[in-house]
Computed example of a mutant assay.
Amino acid sequence: MPRQHRKRTKLAHVLKFVFLTAGAAAMGVALELFLVPNQMIDGGITGISIILAKLTGLPLGIFLFFINLPFLLLGFKQIGRTFAFSTLYGIAVLSVTTSLLHPVPAFTSEKLLALSFGGVLLGAGVGLVLRFGGSLDGTEIVAIIVSKKRRLSVGQIIMFINLFIFLAAGFVFGWDSAMYSVFTYYLATKVMDIVIEGLNESKSVTILSSEHEDISDAINERLGRGTTLIYAKGGYSKEDTLMVFCVVTRLELAKLRSIVQEIDPGAFIAIEPVYEVLGGNFQKKSIH
């Protein structure tokens, strides 16, 4: 491997580590200094953890870490080792951050300010972690698995789960807090949308490279996704070539980019949103 290529790969790993840390820490700040002191919750495992911390008096970080662990093991089998380790690191940073900040007084007791700043920080933090190949909540992993067995989208499953979580928050924190929480979740979702450039469950990826065979094989072997080689002809060069086409989930997109750039840093990559995938056996192969 050329020295310049090794430096580029090492820098990419360092940046990934930095942004995973920043994203998880931002979510911890949002929870402990804005949302939880004002009795607002997030959706998913985080919402469940906040409710349990309120009912038991135990630190929030304990629930965030241990409730997510079983779903992390599922993610290891379904999405791969890199995703699992990135998620484990992100959740560990999140848990430590909430524990360190728990004694710190809230920045504000004004509900609207807490909702606004907490929601933006929360969405930005989750978005950064997703963008760099990890996750901070096991709910999405469950949704991806269930969606393969039921005719429901990932978004529909997450919405269904969160409906019950926000209803539970109404009984624990009061209905005003539950309604504030819904708006917080909505704001965080929109910010996350901006950070990761779309909340679509799947992305179609077209790759143009002279190393198309190696890239296709690597996607099959390391990501567990099938690819299609499409014959094409250069409009300027008039040379025949092959394009690599595949469809991946948004959690797999960061790893796919890494695979392609590792093989051919100059490869042309076009990414498009896919709003629905039907047929074609859109299943992951086992990763060895």
Rank of each mutant, 00 (worst) to 15 (best):
V248Y: 07
A188W: 00
L229K: 08
V195M: 03
M192T: 13
F268S: 01
I269R: 02
G224W: 03
L229H: 04
T249P: 09
Y236H: 03
S258T: 08
R225K: 15
I194G: 00
E197D: 10
I259F: 01
K255N: 12
E213D: 13
K255C: 01
G266Y: 00
D264Y: 00
E262F: 02
P265A: 03
F245M: 11
S237I: 15
S237Q: 13
D214T: 15
P265C: 05
V247T: 15
K190D: 05
S204R: 09
G224L: 09
D240M: 10
Y236V: 11
L229Q: 10
M192S: 13
M243D: 07
E252Y: 09
I219E: 07
S237L: 14
I259Q: 02
S237M: 12
A254C: 08
K238D: 15
G266D: 02
M192V: 14
G224F: 02
P265S: 07
I259A: 00
I207D: 13
T227W: 05
T249Y: 10
E262T: 06
H212N: 07
R257K: 14
P265F: 01
V205R: 09
T227F: 08
A270Y: 00
A218S: 11
V205P: 08
L251H: 05
D217F: 04
L251Y: 00
D193T: 14
K238P: 10
A232N: 02
A270W: 00
R257I: 13
I194L: 07
I215A: 12
D264G: 04
S209G: 07
L251D: 00
A232M: 00
E211D: 12
A254R: 07
A254H: 10
N220H: 12
C246E: 01
E262D: 04
V244M: 09
I269M: 09
D214W: 13
S202F: 01
T228C: 06
T241N: 07
K203A: 08
L256C: 08
F268N: 01
K238T: 15
I196F: 01
A270N: 05
A188T: 03
S258H: 03
I263G: 08
S210M: 03
R225F: 14
G266C: 00
L229C: 03
S204M: 14
K233R: 14
L256T: 11
I215E: 13
K255V: 10
I196R: 04
K190V: 05
S258W: 00
L187T: 12
G226N: 08
Y231V: 15
C246G: 02
R222T: 11
V247M: 06
T227A: 11
L251E: 03
K255E: 15
G224E: 05
N220Q: 12
A232Y: 00
S216L: 00
L199C: 09
I196T: 11
I196K: 11
E211P: 04
I196G: 01
Y231L: 14
K238Y: 11
K233A: 13
L242F: 14
D214Q: 15
K255P: 06
T189S: 06
L187C: 05
A254S: 11
R225S: 15
L253E: 11
R257W: 06
S258D: 08
T228L: 01
E262I: 01
N220A: 10
N200Y: 12
I196V: 11
T189W: 02
T206V: 15
G224A: 01
T206A: 13
E262H: 03
L242C: 12
E262P: 03
S202H: 07
T206R: 10
R250W: 06
T241E: 09
Q261R: 05
V205I: 15
